[in-house]
């Protein structure tokens, strides 16, 4: 489990993280979202032990991460901009990882390398960006980490490659229960893989929930009401819009409760449609003029 408590970090007077707290449960796939400059990468660099906090704590399984190789040997990190030693090839990097990460699994590495079809003797700097990312995933997963930290992991990858990378990641989670922290400014990407989501804005954690909590609590209804009838007052409508006679309403509450309330006014037609994660966020935070909307949409 990753625990961040009251983390503060400033750069030349600019407060990048402001008393931030978050919890990533063991075995969770946690999506950290926020606009550019929200502080996602800064949080991740604290969790991977790169940055020293100004104040606050960052622990993994109760142990501080900073300057703690024992804990860090169980964390694999894939930055948004992957670094390899200049002129190194995949074999060189694998040797380095094998010497650095005590749990590095050479057999798994070979299997993955073959499945990704990456040339082990070509210089990594000659690989395309996508192939470099694949190599990073390969090395990270072969390191058998307990915690996998990914910063914008599929940014710049084509859809096929994204699918392949996510598949590899989820397979590892399913097999070994790896805790995954993944940052993105694209909620659509995270919706399919995350079970926990935290939204970050201007160095603060705005909201931190499980995906189920979020999606179960807000419902999108498409309704055609009879003449002279209105939506029940008991419903907490977050947003409504009308196209022709069809009214679309975003309503807070469980599917069962909303359905029962709508049925009570005997509409001509009504249907409850599942919300996408980004719609949930937009309407949950609808009253707040956050740039979050831009992030999500």
């Amino acid at each position: 489990m990753i625990e961040v408590r009251n983390l503060r970090k400033s750069f030349d007077g600019f407060l990048a993280l402001d008393d931030l707290s978050m919890t990533v449960p063991a075995g969770a796939v946690y999506g950290l979202v926020g606009p550019n400059g929200a502080g996602k990468s800064t949080v991740i660099r604290h969790i991977t032990g790169i940055f020293r906090p100004d104040s606050g704590t960052v622990t993994v399984d109760g142990q501080p991460v900073y300057e703690n190789p024992t804990v860090k040997s169980g964390i694999a990190y894939i930055p948004d901009d992957v670094f390899y030693f200049p002129s190194a090839n995949l074999t060189d990097m694998a040797k380095f990882y094998a010497g650095t990460y005590p749990n590095f699994d050479r057999k798994l590495y070979e299997e993955l390398r073959r499945s990704f079809n990456l040339d082990p003797k070509s210089q990594l700097r000659r690989f395309s960006k996508g192939m470099q990312k694949q190599a990073a995933f390969l090395l990270a997963i072969a390191s058998r980490p307990g915690v996998l930290v990914l910063d914008e992991p599929v940014d710049g990858l084509d859809p096929v490659m994204r699918r392949q990378v996510w598949g590899l990641l989820l397979q590892d989670v399913a097999q070994r229960g790896t805790t995954v922290l993944v940052s993105s400014h694209n909620l659509r990407e995270l919706e399919d893989v995350c079970d926990h989501v935290g939204i970050l804005h201007k160095g603060k954690m705005l909201l931190e929930r499980t995906l189920d909590e979020l999606q179960d609590n807000v419902v999108k209804a498409q309704i055609v009401l009879r003449e002279g009838t209105e939506l029940p007052q008991s419903l907490k409508v977050l947003h409504r819009s009308m196209v022709g006679k069809v009214e679309t309403a975003i309503i807070r509450g469980s599917q069962e409760a909303v359905s029962a309330a709508l049925a009570a006014v005997n509409p001509i037609f009504y249907d409850l449609v599942p919300l996408t994660l980004e719609e949930v966020f937009v309407y949950e935070l609808g009253g707040v003029d956050y740039e979050v909307k831009n992030v999500i949409l």
Binding site: I50, K72, S73, Y77, P79, V82, T100
Partner: peptide, 12 residues
Amino acid sequence: RSAYMLHAFPMT
């Protein structure tokens, strides 16, 4: 890029 990566490895 290199500083972050090297400091992320499990060594003090």
